[in-house]
Each structure stands twice: as C-alpha cells, then as structure tokens.
Design a protein around this nucleic acid. Structure first.
Lengths: 203, 203
DNA sequence: TAGATTGTTAATCGATTAACAATC
DNA sequence: TAGATTGTTAATCGATTAACAATC
C-alpha cells in the first residue's frame, strides 16, 4: 500500500509515534529538532520521514503534536481494523497472544492455531486454540491478511505455504529460518537470538 | 568489537548461518551464487558480507560449507561463552527464558529478575527469578554485559539505567519505548507490534 | 584448456546530511 | 522586524551492484 516510502523510513514511524505518545499532554507543539534530539537522530531526517505521512508543520512553532500523532496513525492505518492469525502456541505464541500492543495499530489477533492435539480447544488470553488443519475453513472469506509464525523452524516453511494458500499476504516469522514466498507475499523475520548475538558482537 | 563491519552486513551473518546449517551434510562446497539465490540476495553482496568473517572461498568450487559456518561462528564469537540477564518475567520474559536458541551463539541467560514479589523465588525454565533490587549484588564481578529487557514501557528507562550502572553494555529492549543510554552502551529495540504494523503497511 | 567462481575495483543507487529560501 | 522552524534542493556518504582480472 505505502510503496512510495522507503522501508527504512517506514520503520522509524512507530518510533516517532511511541515517543510522541509519551509526551505530556500540555505540550501542544513539537519541533523536528526536539524529536531528533530525544531520539538521537538528525532533524532533517525526522522532517523527511514525517513528510511521508503528509503531516504539515508550521514554521517557527513546529508540528501540532496531536495532529502529528494522527498523521502517523493514519499513515499506518491504525484506524482501519485488521485481523491477524497466530500459528504455534508455544511459550512465545502465548506471550504474543496475550500482548495488547497490537491494538494501538488497529490490529487484532483473530485466530490462534496449533497442531498439538493437547492444546487444541484450550483458551489462551480469551482466544481459542484451533487445529491448524482447519485453518483454510476458518479463514475463508474472512479477509485475514496478516500472520504471526511462532512454530519451530522445521515446519515454518510448510506452515507459511499453507497460510499463503489461505490468502495471507504478510507474515511475521519468529523462526530462525528464511521463508520463501511469492513476490506478492511479504515476510519479515524477527530472530531474537540473532539480535542478541549481533548486540554482543557490537560491544 | 567488530567495528569494521557495517551493522547491516553484521545483521545478515546470522541469516547465512541459519541457512548453511539447514543444508544437507553431504553438501561439501557451497557457492555465493547458490546462497544468494536461496536467500533472494545479490551474490556479490553475499561474498562481501562473508569476506568480513575472513572466510575464503575457492575459485570454481566455492566455499567449504563447514569452514564457512565456522568462520561466521568465530566472527560472531559463538564459541566464547557469554552471559545475559533478563529483566521482567511476564509472558514474554518467560518465553525468552525458555528459548534455547541463544546457545547457538554461545550466550546463556545467567539470571532472571523481576520486581513482583509473587514471582521472586519461582523457577522458570530452571532459572530462579531474583529480586531486581538485588541486581547489583548479583552481577558484581560476574562480567555479565548483555541484558534483555521485557519490562513495561513505563519502567524500561529506569531499569536500563540500573542495568547500565551494573556494568551492562548492551541491551535488547522489547518495550516499545526508546531507551537513552551513554555512547558506551548499545541498545537494540524489538517492537513486535510495530513490526506487524509495518508489514501491514507494506501489503 | 575452458569454464565457473572468487575477490576487488569502479559505477550506480539510495539514504542522510548540509545549505538555504520560505514563512509565520 | 528578527528569529526559529519548516520544507526543498544540492551535496555527501555509504551500501549495493556491475565489471572484470585472477585462479583453480
């Protein structure tokens, strides 16, 4: 949808948003320089990033904070309700199911799936765990396009293929394995262990 | 430590490593072109990245797979044992404590901390949960430099400050808030909800 | 030898930063 | 008005890709 913005700028928008939301409610205006300083960035970079959202600032005073928040939220479609599924309800899947931060972005986890017969039917964070073999039936016509993959590496690709076949168009993959997908499907990977190892290498 | 390598190349090393480990053990040689194709990258990029690890390939045949794996592991110090602490044993902290993927990189979670009196003393994944107010005493002289932060946003900064005061030099922060730190301390953030929102924006 | 692949140098591409006019 | 800040254009910087000699 947002094809005009570089992914790297897109990735910074939630950072701005999080920061802006932490500001005291009696701060009416905020300048790019102020944001930049708080986040350790260049101020032109901040202005350029914000310009993608079509936020408009006022010379001399800056941006109206609430307007800026709304501009970023609109750009990220936070007000358009979207549904995600999560597959693999191990410890990580459970944690993500219970996490409430998705609602800030208008995303709701609609279904949880697993293949373990002992888990199917259980409720976690008020969501029933369904059998992954029912995924096609469950998702049919629901317009669910997002998936979170918390399955072991060994089955990540096959589950991803299944999800893509069910109409999923974007996958957040926590398994430390590269997922192959058609060009029409986007995959992002979060490899927690690799992130820590990278940090350690940078010390 | 690895100051010569661009962070973006460093971030790709675990991707290569994960991929190489999935290959059948009777594949003795592997070429950059083959890796590139499998991961959807350019082959010169792969060679450049691998060159940072001082891996050496052979014209005509490619890299010896096991040598390449070792070169990347050495570069990432996977054989040097390092310890991390985790603070905040909610659902996410629990999942990370139970996660075994850190051992691939030679990292062990040595201590778990929380501030909730009801959790202190409990065992999760064979690790005792300690009181965060004991962190300084516990870490003294232990040489622990890595921390994983799974606390609520509201206290992420103060806990980070405390950890830095205890000698922590790198923090993996899961709270959706930017952490301020001195230049000598590196912070990486993983914002799960933001990642999903970004994906959704890219569809 | 011929051909495939590496490693390196040069060219390109894209992102960040610097400079500055516009404006409130 | 003077000064602070935006938004834009040009310059710089860094990463990726292309070209190609070296080599096994």
């Amino acid at each position: 949808m947002n094809k005009d913005i570089p992914v790297i700028s897109l990735q910074r928008l939630p950072i701005y948003l999080n920061y802006l939301k932490t500001l005291s409610s009696d701060e009416h205006y905020i300048s790019s320089g102020f944001i930049a300083k708080a986040l350790g960035m260049g101020e032109v970079l901040v202005r350029k990033d914000l310009a993608y959202t079509s936020a408009v600032g006022k010379p001399r005073s800056g941006y109206i904070k609430e307007e800026l928040i709304s501009a970023i939220e609109d750009y990220l479609c936070c007000n358009r309700k979207r549904s995600a599924v999560i597959v693999g309800i191990g410890a990580l899947g459970r944690a993500i199911l219970a996490y409430e931060g998705f609602t800030n972005y208008g995303i709701e986890i609609a279904y949880a799936f697993d293949s373990d017969k002992n888990k199917i039917g259980l409720e976690v964070a008020k969501k029933t765990i369904w059998d992954i073999s029912d995924v096609k039936r469950k998702l049919k016509g629901q317009g669910v396009e997002l998936a979170i993959l918390c399955v072991p590496s060994s089955c990540a690709q096959s589950v991803a293929d299944l999800l893509i076949d069910c109409g999923i168009r974007a996958i957040l993959n926590f398994a430390p394995v590269s997922i192959k997908s058609p060009d029409s499907v986007i995959v992002r990977q979060i490899d927690v262990a690799a992130n820590l190892a990278i940090l350690s290498s940078m010390i």
